Simulated scan of single mutants.
Amino acid sequence: MTRPRTLVTGGSRGIGAATALRLAHDGHDIALSYVSDKDAAERTADAVRDAGARCVVARADTSREADVERLFDLAQAELGALTGLVNNAGVTAPLGPLADTSTDDLRRVVDVNVLGVLLCCRRAARDMGAAGEGAIVNVSSAAATLGSPGDYVHYAASKAAVDTITLGLAKELGPLGVRVNAVAPGIIDTEIHAASGDPGRAAAAAPGIPLRRPGTAEEVAAAIAWLLSPSAAYTTGTVLRVAGGR
């Protein structure tokens, strides 16, 4: 049987890296993108190849149309027509109230988390729609429904937009044979918290989570893998919450 071929944006670390590796073990060939950490991306690619999959690595800022087009072109030139897309690339910006957030940080969050998802979804819609098959999984956040006051309201708003993109595009592409879903992680123990200025945030949040612990990148990857699998063939327009009960 032909192996699935899936592009994972932001695939160098955290949820993206865990997803690339999980999908490789599930039989996918992988293309992954990164923005700045080439060494981490290559380590992930090596692990994917060790799992028996082909892997293409490319630097791409998904908020830039030219980068997105080049990324898809390269992935498909090396692997063949893509059957899956995981829109994982995202940024948070420093934690704090909206009143203290700079315009540059607001713009970057919206550019990557909303425009970047739209650009990748648009290209996937064109390619997969023409092929009559495919699956897209967008990485949203539990913040979309919690609002994240005092932390990053702007990030929460960007992820609410991802939920809406998921719902609308699922209805648009369903008749063409393309499924569109999302996962909404809660507090996950990855490097994203250090990047936003609070490396201990995941552990500190544990008492407020019904399961009393942060999640792991591998647990989110498992949900993404299911949404891309034939087992989820009748699932589209769904935001699957992976948040420990929050």
Results as ranks from 00 to 15, higher is better:
G84K: 03
G129F: 09
D111M: 02
M128N: 05
A99I: 14
M128V: 07
R64Y: 10
V117T: 15
N88T: 13
R70H: 11
D67P: 01
L79T: 02
A131S: 11
P97T: 14
L106Y: 08
R70Y: 09
A66Q: 14
V112P: 02
V57G: 07
E65F: 07
Q76W: 00
V137P: 01
A130L: 09
D104N: 00
C120N: 09
G134Q: 03
A125N: 08
A60V: 10
E65S: 11
R108W: 04
P97E: 12
D61V: 06
V68R: 04
D104S: 06
T101M: 14
A75M: 01
D100M: 07
P97N: 11
T83V: 03
R107A: 00
L118D: 12
M128H: 06
D104C: 02
P94K: 12
T101C: 08
R126V: 15
Q76S: 05
V139G: 05
V139H: 06
A99K: 09
M128E: 10
N87W: 09
E78I: 00
S141I: 11
Q76L: 02
D104V: 04
N113T: 12
G84F: 03
V68H: 04
V112M: 02
G80S: 06
A142P: 00
G84Y: 03
A66W: 09
N113A: 12
A124V: 05
R123T: 15
R123I: 13
N138I: 06
E78P: 02
A58E: 14
V56N: 03
F72V: 01
C121S: 14
D111S: 08
A89K: 08
R107F: 00
A135I: 04
N88P: 05
D73R: 00
G84W: 03
D127H: 04
R108E: 04
S102R: 04
R70D: 13
C55V: 11
A77W: 00
V56L: 09
A125T: 12
V56A: 07
F72E: 01
L85G: 04
D61E: 15
G134K: 03
D127C: 03
R64I: 13
E78N: 01
G96M: 12
T83E: 10
T62V: 15
L71Y: 01
L95V: 12
R126T: 15
N138C: 06
C55R: 09
S102Q: 05
L82Q: 01
E78C: 02
F72A: 00
L79I: 05
L95Q: 14
G116I: 10
L85A: 09
V110S: 05
L115E: 14
A135D: 06
D105P: 00
T103D: 07
D61Y: 08
A89T: 11
T83N: 04
T83C: 02
G116L: 10
E69T: 07
Q76P: 01
T103A: 05
V139P: 01
L74F: 03
A130W: 07
V110H: 08
L119I: 13
N88R: 10
G134I: 02
T62K: 01
R107S: 00
D67W: 10
S102V: 04
L98V: 15
V56F: 02
S63R: 06
D100Y: 06
